[in-house]
Amino acid sequence: MLSRVAESLYWMGRYTERAENVARLLDIGLFIELDAELGAGEGFSPVEIALTILACRDAFPMDLGAPSRDAVLRFLTFDRSNAQSILSMIARARENARGAQEAIGVDVWSEVNRLYLFLGGTRAQKRFVRSPSGLFTSIKNSCLLLDGMIQNTLPRDEVYHFLELGRHLERLDVLCRILRAKCPILTQAVDGAEAAMQLVRWTSLLRSCSAHGPFLRSERERIEPEGVLRFLVLDSEFPRSIRYSAARCQASLQEITGGDEDYGCEAERILGRLESDLRYLDVAEIFDRGLLRFLDSLQVTCHRVGDEIQRSFFLI
C-alpha cells in the first residue's frame, strides 16, 4: 500500500488509542478524587498526574494560580492549543483518517468524523458540565465502537495491520508512562491510614487500565504491588498488558513484512526481543533490577520501535 496511507493509518491507530486512554485516566482520576480526600503536598492528585503522564505540565497555563480540577479536566479534554488534549488527538486521528478514507471505508471514517464534530461542538460541552464522567464514557464508547468496526469490517491486510500496529504500540507506550508516573508514589513504604490510601491508589491504577475485574479473577489474591505489576506488565492474556501489546505489535509487523522465521525489519527484531524478554521475566527480577530503571528502558525500547517503523515503511 502507499507509504503515506500506511503512515496515516498508523497514526490514526495511535491517536485514537491515546484519546481513549486519556478519557479512561481522567474518568478514574475524577472518580477517586471525589471518593476520598487525598493528602495534599504528597505527589499530584489523580487528575493532575495526567499532566505528568502526557508530558504537558509545562503547557498548562499556571498564571491562574494552582490548577483547579475543572481547569485541568478542560485543558486535557477540550483545549485545542494543548496537543495532548482528547480533542486535539481526535482532530489528528481524523485528519489522518481523512487522508486514508479509501482504505478504511465509509463507516470507520464517519465514526471518527462524528466523534470529532461532537467533541468540537456544544453538545460535548453541555455533557461535560452535567457530568464529566458521562462525557468520558461516551468518548470511550465511541473509540470502542470504532475498534469494533475495524475488527469486524476490515480484511486482515496491511490496512488493518498498520492500524493495529499503531494502536498496540500506543497502548504499550501509555501504560509505560502511567506506571512511570505513578510508581514513585505507589511504592513508598507507608503505614496506618496511609496504607488504606495506598490500596485505593493501586486499585485505581488497575481501573484506569480496565484491569480491576480481570486482575481479581486471575490473581485470586489481594491487591498488592508485585501481583498488580506482574499482571499489568507480564500477563500473557490480558489485552492491555505490556507483554500482550508487544506481542500484538510483533504479530502485525510480521503480517506486514511477511517474515516467517527471520525478522523482516529492525522494529520486528526489537519487538521480538522485548517479547521474549517479557515472556521469561519474573516480577521479582524487575524489582531487583529497579522498577524505575526497568520502566525507563522499556520506554526507550518503545521509542526505538516507533523510529524504526518510520524508517522502514514511511520514508520510502
Binding site: 500500500m1 502507499l2 507509504s3 503515506r4 500506511a6 496491511e158 498498520f162 506486514i256 515503511f313 520510502i316
Partner: peptide, 8 residues
Amino acid sequence: FRRTTRGL
C-alpha cells in the same frame, strides 16, 4: 511509480 510500504 508509487511509493509503497514494499518499495516502488
